[in-house]
Simulated scan of single mutants.
Amino acid sequence: MASARSDFGALLHAWRDRLAPADAGFPVTGGRRAPGLRREELAQLAGLSVDYVLRLEQGRARNPSAQVVGALARALQLSRTERDELYRAAGLLPPRDGTIGTHVPPGIQRLTARLGDVPIGVFGADWTLLWWNGMWSGLHGDPALVPVGERNLARAVFGTGAARASMRPFRSDRGHGAFAASIVADLRDAVSRYPADAGLDRLVRELRDTSAAFAQLWTTATASQHTSDRKTVRHPELGDITLDCDVLVVPGADLRMVTYTAAGGSEDAGKLDLLRVTNGRAAGTLP
């Protein structure tokens, strides 16, 4: 058992040393004693405390949860094979096929981190937020402040908890009703493709039980899936920012990259520039 914990810590340390700070969205500065991520940077990316990451690396923290291991795997930009190795080193079974994936390929993470001028969030098939860059936090608020289980767009639209409370006011050119219906349509499609996913089943059952609007849309609506839109987000400091919102599908991973852009030279582009200067920080991922 001690050997397994030691292997887990050794893998964390080795893969942390391997990951270039620029690929994780951190500025490259002088004074680094090692080429990889600092321990506090990994902790920030994974949404964990620095002390907990230290104890994991030293083998003093036992039995990390599947959520913690998944967050570390995404933060370290591991391949699927490496991710599975990390799960096994923690004494856990890797995620099963046939369930909604939470693995964000390293290339997508690097792309998200390096496109620092554009707010980008990466979502799973159930609209759970898996990865985001600093501009996303600046535009929508920091997802790390929202409890892990609440970081889901359907919960933000139809729920009554922290996700709903954290969502900044916005308007959709398609209309709020069409936007809400498209989220339900996406979940209905996900259920048809992942019938054995227990988390998705819980999400749908909970929203059907607690939201009359969701329940009605689930049983009666015929809606198109959520795609491109034009949205106006009410920012607490900068006021209304009107942006083109595009949803890009990641082939082979069943992920959605949501991006927000503005036409160059526009007032809204100027607000995005100001947002980058005042709110930019490293990318993040949920535990």
Rank of each mutant, 00 (worst) to 15 (best):
Y87V: 00
Q216I: 06
T219Y: 05
Y260N: 08
R205Y: 00
T29P: 01
R16N: 09
R96I: 05
R202I: 04
H235G: 07
A14V: 06
H13C: 08
R88W: 07
P169I: 03
L92M: 11
R38I: 05
L275A: 12
V69W: 09
G9S: 03
R208N: 05
D126I: 01
A61E: 15
A24C: 07
N279D: 15
G284V: 02
V146C: 06
P106M: 06
G31E: 11
F214T: 00
S266C: 03
G30S: 11
A212T: 12
E85G: 02
H176Q: 14
C245G: 00
L139V: 03
D197Y: 05
S166Q: 10
G70R: 03
A221Q: 00
A263Q: 15
S182Y: 00
F179V: 03
P94V: 11
P106T: 10
L238Y: 03
F123S: 01
L248K: 02
P195G: 04
A165P: 02
L274W: 07
A14Q: 12
F158V: 01
V249H: 13
A14F: 05
R88P: 00
A4Y: 07
Q77P: 02
T232N: 04
A196W: 02
A2D: 15
G107F: 13
R256E: 10
G149D: 11
L45K: 02
A125M: 12
R16P: 01
R230L: 13
A14C: 05
P95H: 10
T261H: 13
T285Y: 02
S172G: 08
P169K: 09
K271P: 04
A66T: 12
L153M: 09
W136P: 04
S192Y: 01
R276C: 09
D189F: 00
L76R: 01
D254N: 09
G25I: 00
L207F: 00
A213R: 04
D189L: 00
L200F: 03
L92W: 09
G239M: 05
R18C: 08
T242D: 08
R281D: 13
H103T: 01
P236L: 11
W132M: 12
A154I: 01
V247G: 08
G138D: 13
R256Q: 15
S224E: 15
V28Q: 14
A2R: 07
P64Y: 05
S137M: 14
L153V: 06
L11G: 07
L111N: 08
L86A: 09
D197H: 02
H103D: 12
L145W: 09
I183Q: 01
P35C: 12
G9M: 07
S266W: 10
S6D: 14
A61N: 12
V258W: 00
K271Q: 14
A75F: 07
A24W: 00
Q109V: 10
V50P: 06
A162T: 08
L248A: 07
H226N: 14
A66W: 05
I100A: 02
T220V: 08
T81N: 12
A212Y: 08
L111P: 03
S65E: 08
L274H: 14
G177R: 15
D126P: 02
G284K: 06
D268C: 08
T128I: 05
T227I: 11
D246R: 15
D246Q: 14
D23K: 06
H140S: 13
V146G: 04
Q216K: 11
A66H: 07
S79P: 04
V277P: 00
